[in-house]
């Protein structure tokens, strides 16, 4: 892929991630800590498949930092970052093995995102008992991952349409 095209796609997906974060902030929240749809991860999953792990990491980082500055509080940043880093690492590795489709990759991304957050919380607050909160997040993370993966898979399959229009 040409560098300009690559850069454009990267910027497009980063913007998409931000808009999706904003969109999700407009939706009613379930009000249960850690339970979240994570709509913006659609853009991260697409970036992982279209542009590779480094680009996906860049988009994820830009999103986490910008969203924390725009809509969130500072303590939230450490938790978001821990979740984003762990999930991206796991998703990149699993994608490389070729065992799973984007759906499975996204599901693993969802549950490891929550795992990263809980681990960071247990570490920062020095309360290992917080890990007992994870089973609940394992359910919500799996379901969110299925939704994000299905949506991302849909976009990935439509990707060649974007390609055609560019010509």
């Amino acid at each position: 892929m040409k560098r300009t095209k690559r850069l454009t796609r990267l910027a497009l997906l980063a913007a998409l991630a931000l808009v999706l974060s904003y969109l999700e902030s407009l939706l009613p929240s379930p009000g249960i800590p850690g339970v979240k749809l994570g709509l913006a991860n659609v853009a991260v999953v697409c970036a992982l498949y279209w542009l590779g792990p480094l680009s996906a990491a860049a988009i994820s980082l830009v999103r986490v930092v910008t969203v924390s500055l725009l809509f969130g509080s500072f303590p939230a940043l450490a938790y978001s970052l821990a979740g984003a880093v762990l999930s991206l690492a796991v998703m990149s590795l699993v994608k490389k093995t070729g065992w799973l489709s984007p759906l499975g990759v996204s599901v693993l991304g969802g549950v490891t995102h929550n795992l990263g957050q809980v681990l960071m919380a247990a570490l920062l607050l020095e309360t290992p008992a917080l890990l007992w909160y994870y089973p609940l997040l394992l359910v919500s993370g799996t379901l969110a991952g299925v939704f994000i993966g299905a949506l991302g898979g849909l976009l990935l399959r439509r990707g060649d349409l974007v390609e055609d229009r560019e010509r």
């Binding site: 065992w99 799973l100 489709s101 759906l103 499975g104 599901v107 089973p135 394992l138 359910v139 799996t142």
Partner: peptide
């Protein structure tokens, strides 16, 4: 891959 996806999802739900 899709078969493994489904197994993974099922496994995670059972684990939780």
């Amino acid at each position: 891959r899709i078969r493994r996806d489904l197994l993974l999802i099922l496994g995670l739900l059972i684990l939780s």
